[in-house]
């Protein structure tokens, strides 16, 4: 959907076209859920977060002037909601002295994906699990910067604008995140074929 089509759709939604908002959601939902899953590491919580992002979008539509695309707006909102979510999770763990059990199944794996192959490579599954554990060692911002740069391919300057941070700060977060992940995943790399 290009910008002109999107603006037209927005006009229709504002005029009361109820199916238009559903079209908009179906268009953006896979990307939003994918991003949220990578950011928080839990598919079902990522879906809740995506719902919240779309509810906020619906509330914000009357004020939408079209100076940024819906996709960019959703990206920014999802990232900020994810950072908020990660911080709250960390806080809860700190306050209740709750530690994630190392043997807990990885939340990404527990969500069944109809396309997944049951005999998926064991090494990949273990690597996913280790990555999930390693990502938990990062601060919410470090994790967001890493995911946005490494998985989503966003330039650091865009990430800085997205998170309202200086580019230097974003660089520091990326450095810290990569260093921590390399350290945490060192033995995974050693075992890799």
């Amino acid at each position: 959907m290009d910008n002109a089509q999107e603006l037209l759709l927005l006009e229709q939604i504002r005029a009361g076209d109820q199916a238009g908002f559903a079209t908009l959601m179906r268009q953006h939902a896979p990307k939003v859920v994918g991003l949220a899953t990578r950011l928080i590491g839990d598919r079902s919580e990522a879906e809740d977060l995506a719902q919240e992002a779309f509810l906020r979008l619906h509330r914000a539509l009357p004020g939408f002037r079209g100076d940024s695309s819906i996709g960019t707006w959703l990206y920014r909102t999802t990232t900020r909601l994810a950072i908020d979510h990660l911080r709250r999770e960390k806080l809860k763990r700190k306050l209740f002295f709750f530690r994630q059990n190392e043997d807990d199944p990885d939340p990404i794996e527990t969500v069944s994906d109809p396309r997944s192959n049951p005999a998926r490579d064991l090494h990949t599954r273990q690597a996913m699990r280790r990555l999930s554990q390693a990502l938990r060692k990062l601060s919410a911002r470090q994790r967001a910067v890493f995911v946005l740069r490494h998985h989503e391919g966003l330039p650091l300057q865009e990430i800085a604008a997205l998170l309202g941070l200086e580019t230097g700060t974003v660089k520091a977060h990326l450095h810290r995140a990569v260093t921590t992940l390399r350290l945490e995943l060192a033995d995974v790399y050693e075992e890799a074929p």
Partner: peptide, 23 residues
């Protein structure tokens, strides 16, 4: 080392309909 970091599986297409319905 960075190339070996796995990426989470992309959501199945049905997720779009599910999210739209819930919202």
């Amino acid at each position: 080392e960075l190339a070996r970091i796995p990426a989470a599986v992309d959501p199945e297409p049905a997720v779009a309909t599910r999210i739209a319905a819930r919202v």
